[in-house]
Nucleic acid binder design. Structure first.
Lengths: 252, 252
DNA sequence: TAGATTGTTAATCGATTAACAATC
DNA sequence: TAGATTGTTAATCGATTAACAATC
């Protein structure tokens, strides 16, 4: 069993009982069900993937338990914040013990939908689309790429990292014959909105938008996550020029 | 003069005087200099690129003036927030008139370091690195890509979108002979930290990190901007699964 | 049991929004 | 001047941190 097997294994409460701790997530006071999910703030949600990463790392290091205090130090946040965040989803720890790393990792994986059998298509087989298919990101997060679509002649019919590239004309019929949950939008800016509309009509529930185009659909029927690379680059620029200000612009 | 020329043109206060408005940014009460930049909250900074994008769009549409109220409606935020945000950097508007679009765009461009002559290198000539060079993002934001570096045999010596790919061994000597402000990190995870250290020693002041590795340098000497694609994908997953909860999981 | 550490409430801090006087 | 709209202060809201009782 290699690391990836280890990490993909889901630990259950039974695994923990064998360690002599059988009360994880069972505090009488915090029997909060996931029905209350919609109350959870964006600030908390944005932090979850980082917890996920750190827990994954702890598992590869063989750690089995950790306190909010230790994790806080590791992650450079307050222990209070960690306990508050985790408690939004229910009591994952145990007084006097801390958190079981495997159990916590499994719970957070569930919350983040890892292993939920999500299927994705990539729209646009340009450089960015092809780069994304090659990254191990999707498989690591349990997302299956079931197809790529492109409008140009060049790529259609070819295969990228084991994924077939289809013509965009074929989009609707593909979606009828395959479960498609997510579409990754990497096609030219001016085509994004119309293709997004088509995808939504096809029943796609999540749009991962790389093109900096503002999309708005009803939040309760289509989830949109924007990756604004240009914005990120500008913020880096800003930070650099601020540093110069703080140093009294001694470089000029 | 095409759109890009128009957008790259910097408008000065003189341009505005010719329109009969000569008091932009000169309110007696808000003679805040940029020396106070370090006080500006992250929340405000993260919103600046979005203002930049909307203003750019307004210019291409030929708009010359806009009120905080109109811009607020367009951007789906409060007018109050817009006025607060802009006032962090000084008074950019005029009572009774609103904001001059070109003037505001120019000021925000300056704040974000567009046209500051920033040079960048891309470390890693894999799919992601090559995809990034091809995006027009850098040139649009006035960042010049002066070279790419790779450790493998395959790419070294070749050229991608007009940019030479050098061997990583050549990094230090390249940095001695060229002004390098930013390094884009797209190389394998396990090499990121050591190469980042080398870059910092070379005097690079900004790291644009795509590999999800946590880097920490003194905030006042090295700026780091992380693009966590995996985190973004997981948040999309989360949103989708939350929607199902809210709908009472009627899909299952 | 005593020590440790959570879950959770209360206090603080910061960010957003509302309101309005200043002024173009 | 009167109307419009900013810049800015004050009020509200939400998120973070501190504190501690519950409990393993």
């Amino acid at each position: 069993m290699d690391y990836d097997d280890l990490l993909n294994e889901n630990f259950t409460e039974d695994d923990l009982k064998s360690e002599g701790y059988d009360n994880f997530g069972k505090s009488a006071q915090n029997a909060r069900t996931e029905q209350t999910r919609h109350n959870i703030s964006q600030a908390v949600i944005k932090r979850l993937p980082r917890y996920y990463r750190y827990l994954r790392e702890l598992i590869t290091q063989g750690r089995t338990r950790i306190s909010s205090g230790e994790l806080a130090e590791l992650m450079n946040v307050t222990a209070s914040q960690i306990r508050q965040d985790l408690n939004c989803f229910g009591g994952f720890g145990q007084q006097g013990y801390g958190y079981n790393v495997n159990y916590l990792y499994t719970r957070i994986s569930e919350i983040l939908g890892v292993g939920a059998g999500i299927n994705a298509v990539i729209i646009g087989a340009g450089d960015l689309g092809r780069a994304l298919v090659h990254l191990s990101m999707f498989e690591k997060r349990g997302v299956d790429i079931v197809g790529m679509f492109d409008s140009g002649e060049g790529m259609v019919g070819r295969e990228v990292a084991g994924v077939n590239v289809y013509s965009l004309d074929y989009l609707e019929s593909f979606c009828q014959n395959n479960k498609v949950d997510i579409a990754v939008l990497t096609l030219p800016k001016d085509q994004v909105k119309s293709v997004a509309d088509r995808l939504v009509l096809c029943g796609v529930r999540g749009l991962w938008n790389f093109m900096g185009v503002e999309l708005d659909y009803d939040r309760n029927s289509v989830a949109v996550e924007n990756v604004h690379l240009g914005d990120s680059l500008m913020i880096l620029n800003y930070k650099i020029s601020s540093m110069e200000f703080d140093r009294g612009e001694d470089e000029f």
